[in-house]
Write a protein that binds this DNA or RNA. Structure first.
Lengths: 188, 188
DNA sequence: ATTATATACTAATATTATTAGTTTGTCAAG
DNA sequence: CTTGACAAACTAATAATATTAGTATATAAT
């Protein structure tokens, strides 16, 4: 019976992410689940995360970092409409790849959590920069960010929760929605 | 110590709704909470709801009925763009009035639950009729329904979860978003 | 080689949901 | 008015989960 050190923070969080994505629903990540998956006892988890709440918080950070990374990569070398389309597709791809983690990421960060808030702001800043290259600034840009986030989150959230059941191409639905919004933005 | 009948199904579900709305997060409605609020013991709740899952399901039905009612009322005597705007504002008003119940209502109904599925379909049918009066039919209408729902749900969900923190008028953001989408729909 | 620390463990407790079985008002039928 | 069925409350017991306290040991550093 080994008391040897085997777990790394990465392994713990990635296992948790896998469980979250397999189960879909965040409420179904339990410390019991995670401990079993890692072959340790539940109380031993407290050496790695600050309880269930801490685990979810760590998962959120992890997810935001991933989303940030693929968003940065998506907009690299792009401006204007191309960049916005790239953001849209990166966002949706992230939600598909990490359905369980996704639902954590979109929650507003608690203001007292500096790291979460910083990550969240970084994402917003990217959007703001991209919209600036779409000739939107000031209050117009802020309204546009809200609108764009709403469009992306709304579609992706309904889609991953199974609300779009009809045998109708979801890619097409998404492309139309994004196109309509971006067209509308540029006609102000 | 009274074993007298005091509770009605309405009282139970409305108390649960109040708790859900006060706490915001659905995961924080507990049978313990609800029983305390009703001044009965937890097991006695099982005379009224089929466990926690049944309670949430009943709340969902209740919420859908409300949403359906205010949507019907909103579109009464309206067609085309007027009707769609009315639906949008009714939807948002519902989410503001019932933030806790709202998060239950938007989940895709389990196919085996006939009542939930029926209510959900009724809402979709209203949307479909309204869009038909906006000169959208067939696949175009289906894509449009997805888009419209995404817009509404996305904004309202982010808004009620506290994601729009900046001191920028949210009504204005919402109106712009909806206007952009509806404009885009009519220009196909 | 020795020691400090990280990390695993067991044991115990609190919270919540659930089931089983019992009691007692209430209401309607005779 | 009595009585009997039923609805709806109760207590008691169990299971799942999270959490804390305290202990033991392998690994890493000195």
């Amino acid at each position: 019976m080994a008391k040897t050190r085997r777990l790394t923070p990465e392994l713990v969080i990635e296992t948790a992410a896998r469980l979250a994505n397999e189960r879909g629903d965040v409420s179904q990540i339990t410390l019991t689940n995670l401990a079993a998956e890692l072959n340790i006892r539940v109380p031993s988890l407290y050496n790695h995360v600050k309880g269930l709440e801490g685990l979810q918080r760590d998962l959120t950070v992890w997810g935001l970092q991933q989303l940030l990374a693929i968003t940065r990569e998506a907009v690299l070398g792009k401006v204007g409409r191309d960049a916005l389309l790239a953001v849209a597709h990166a966002y949706r791809a992230f939600a598909h790849a990490q359905p369980g983690v996704y639902s954590l990421v979109l929650k507003a960060p608690p203001p007292e959590d500096a790291q979460l808030t910083a990550l969240s702001n970084e994402l917003l800043m990217i959007l703001q920069l991209v919209l600036a290259s779409y000739h939107l600034e000031g209050e117009d840009a802020l309204h546009a960010i809200r609108g764009f986030r709403s469009v992306l989150h709304g579609f992706v959230s309904l889609e991953t929760s199974g609300a779009f059941e009809l045998p109708l191409d979801r890619d097409e639905s998404f492309n139309r929605l994004v196109a309509i919004y971006l067209d509308g933005l540029s006609k102000n």
